[in-house]
Design a protein around this nucleic acid. Structure first.
Lengths: 205, 205
DNA sequence: GCCAAAATTAAACAAACGTTTGAATTAAAC
DNA sequence: GTTTAATTCAAACGTTTGTTTAATTTTGGC
């Protein structure tokens, strides 16, 4: 059955996201997926290959390439859409996002490079929007690389430091749905307000 | 000798930061610290207690409480100083910062709460500056919690996604010094420019 | 219904893990 | 110099780790 393979991926995503790669044993995964231990090696070859397969399969979920194709949108509209898209995707894939964050610290260079490659694709898209907005004199001169880092970093912060925000916002921990509901709209409007001021050519010094 | 204890902490900081808590064995630590394996249990009780000791010992390094005491500074000056202080501290403690990021995902609630507590202290300081600036009509109305998140997140991003920025900025990996030199001034001026626009009361809608 | 391929299983593997033990060594106190 | 406590050590402890094996069951084509 092919749905066992799928089940393994699904469970691995949750456990890797919650406990980290090293903090999750293949026995944990097998048990939660109701699958024999050996099936993981059988389908994926190894634990690390399982992580690679997971990242490769899910990578496309968080890619926003289509957006830049739409010529009718102004740079400001594109920025708003990027924020909506990006926040939604990450908020509905908290575990996967956690895995990608951890992937940066992986001891495996293959994983590190895979994660970097995925991030790079999104980075290039946002960068293109910023450059275009500058050319059209909507946006002022800013540090483009770090501006993208601010967007990614602000969003990441709400997942990395989730325990921290739970504490601030009085959200019971492990309640994914409550967290999403509370954070998503705030995050979107904060980022839009932030970038509107930061990028506006009227604020050029 | 008490310097063995210190050596263990020093090595643990580097290894936990590089490979994660689960990715570092007590044997790794003992070997790199030139210390017998049993000394770690002897001094700290357990591997987890070692991490707790590490966080507690280093926590004060990244606390910026003194700043708010200075009444002669305007809110704008305080913002600039916070940025300088925070960026410098994190950039010169990359490993420790990595550990704290990972700590958010620790399976130990004690660790999670310890990290949250440390972050909360800094959070409160920055929050105080923002509130004060709003009261004095320097700053406009913004989402304070997420504005702090933006500052922390932007800085964190440069350490979490370091492999990513290495790739963008063409820095050879594992060269901490080159990374610091390249990123620090850019990060400071980007954050100052960002917050100047974001907080300025002239941008009030 | 037979057969080869694919899927599934329990069991075993060696290696690595965190921790403990009890003896040996060093340091400090008197 | 003797005694007591603190330190250091090699060795072993029992688990848990990721992976493999070889036997068994299920599946799909003919």
């Amino acid at each position: 059955m092919a749905d066992k393979r799928e089940e393994i991926l699904l469970v691995a995503e949750r456990l890797f996201g919650d406990n980290g790669f090293d903090g999750t044993s293949v026995r944990d995964i097998a048990q939660h997926a109701n699958v024999n231990l050996a099936m993981i090696s059988y389908y994926f070859g190894s634990k690390e290959k399982l992580l690679e397969a997971l990242l490769e399969q899910r990578a496309n979920y968080t890619i926003l390439e289509a957006l830049n194709k739409d010529e009718s949108l102004t740079p400001w509209e594109k920025i708003d859409r990027v924020i909506d898209f990006y926040v939604d995707k990450i908020m509905s894939n908290l575990c996967l996002h956690n895995i990608m964050q951890q992937g940066n610290n992986s001891r495996s260079d293959e994983i590190k490079e895979l994660v970097t490659k995925i991030k790079l694709r999104n980075f290039e898209q946002i960068k293109k929007i910023l450059l275009d907005g500058q050319k059209k004199k909507f946006f002022r001169k800013v540090d483009i690389e770090l501006t993208v880092g601010t967007v990614m970093g602000t969003i990441s912060q709400t997942t990395i430091a989730r325990h921290f925000y739970n504490s601030i916002f009085n959200i019971e921990k492990n309640n994914d749905e409550a967290y999403r509901k509370k954070i998503t709209p705030r995050l979107k409007s904060h980022l839009k307000q932030l970038l509107r001021a930061h990028l506006d050519i009227k604020n050029e010094e």
